[in-house]
Write a protein that binds this DNA or RNA. Sequence first.
DNA 1: TCCATATTGTAGTGCTCACTACAGATGTAG
DNA 2: CTACATCTGTAGTGAGCACTACAATATGGA
Lengths: 203, 203
Amino acid sequence: MGMGRPRTFDCDAALDQAMEVFWRHGYEGATIAQLTEAMGINPPSLYAAFGSKEGLLKAALDRYTERRAAWMEEVLSAPTARDVAERMLMGVAEKQTDPANPPGCLLVQGGIACGTGSASVPFELAARRAQTEEQLRDRFARAKDEGDLKLSADPAALARYVSAVSVGMGVMASSGADRDALAQVAAVAVKAVEEQSSGRPET
Amino acid sequence: MGMGRPRTFDCDAALDQAMEVFWRHGYEGATIAQLTEAMGINPPSLYAAFGSKEGLLKAALDRYTERRAAWMEEVLSAPTARDVAERMLMGVAEKQTDPANPPGCLLVQGGIACGTGSASVPFELAARRAQTEEQLRDRFARAKDEGDLKLSADPAALARYVSAVSVGMGVMASSGADRDALAQVAAVAVKAVEEQSSGRPET
DNA sequence: TCCATATTGTAGTGCTCACTACAGATGTAG
DNA sequence: CTACATCTGTAGTGAGCACTACAATATGGA
């Protein structure tokens, strides 16, 4: 039996283009016409490859998190909790204002509130943000075990805090904040983590 | 000459209902059908009173910020920059999880990214968020003049920071974070402002 | 009372949306 | 070369969208 006509477009390259459209316009704001044009394909090819608009979003999200995995590893490998926070937040300031991408973070820009037909999208994005928060929590828990964080420090609260600041910076980036402005926010934010560190003088 | 048939619905009460729909579904996710049903009116009445869907959003935003003005005054009247930040962030944790309203903040839930037809909406929301940031900046500048903040403190950066944390907390609230979780974030965040205060021991 | 003016409810308008039927094209297997 | 399986492009599909035409209705002023 024949194996059919082979696909003529690069699936990953198309996903990158779709990612950008979702990033810039959000899930609901992105139309199939915009997506297909950016991807250089026609609607039937899109539906054959990804099943639905939501399926395409999930594939784009997978690619997005996959691309960030290496950077996240580097963040978590910082020696102290304070340095983890600094690498994370400074990196966020840089990435969210990278002119190669739309401003902000896809996991926020994708859609915070949606209509009744897309109610699951915000949950999907939240679940992916929660993964990063979990990684931070585990890393901060280790820091506490290692005596790097005070005994009174709460790793879960610190991870939520760093995650919240990242999200807030993303929203600011998408509404025009430049890299310096975000870096200033990051610098202030790191102080709070520093304050929970046991290495500080006079504690 | 006659003055026409009088309006039979309460404009402010209808705006409150519209506000809730925008808050829960975002600008693009909210449909005219949902809005009119929640407001208890028919489309022609909506368009006669507010001009367009975007006009209705702006009216709802006006009402939203007006309602927060009193609370904001109370926040800004706190004696020190640290207390301003604490009142602000703890208040945000409380308000964004108030079961009387949808979770999060209308100025974020309303729409961070929109389609090409509603591109002005995110800007509109950002401009309103910037107003709060300005109020904080002016208050922190005064705190610096009063010697309440260190000479090295940057009021604009601090205001941006508090604003960013508020926004991040709003996104977390909308994705299910409860009041305690947000209060923990707020408590950590306040430490960073505290660190910029001149009243701290051993500085 | 009768006109002018404004609101209301019904019932649409044209448009755009996500999605797909279909036929032609392009590959593999025998 | 033939049969078959899959992709590709064209051209739509019904559904839902923001918005409105229209006639009925309710007021104030002459």
